[in-house]
């Protein structure tokens, strides 16, 4: 199996991460690296933005950085 798409950027995947712990945009981008999803940088940003807008996660500042999280 090619390794180029072993990770999928989906709403469910993002939801699972944000339920587990608060994450910054950079934390999320690390989970969905382009080399793992096969998406371009631009696609990754656009898709992740759409997903976050739909999920509308809670936000809190930790160490001066905005973190997103969800509760079950």
């Amino acid at each position: 199996t090619p390794s180029s798409s072993d990770v999928q950027l989906t709403e469910e995947a993002v939801r699972r991460y944000l339920i587990r712990k608060p994450m910054t945009t950079k934390d999320l981008l690390k989970k969905f690296q382009t080399k793992r999803t096969g998406l371009s940088s631009e696609q990754t940003v656009n898709v992740l933005a759409q997903i976050l807008k739909r999920l509308n996660p809670e936000r809190k500042m930790v160490n001066d950085k905005m973190h997103f999280y969800l509760t079950e």
């Binding site: 910054t24 945009t25 981008l29 940088s41 656009n46 933005a49």
Partner: peptide, 20 residues
């Protein structure tokens, strides 16, 4: 690279700022 990651994070935050 980490600078590309920084750029992507900045682009994502810009997208979200319009919304949030």
């Amino acid at each position: 690279s980490s600078s590309e990651a920084d750029e992507m994070a900045a682009a994502l935050e810009a997208e979200l700022n319009d919304f949030m």
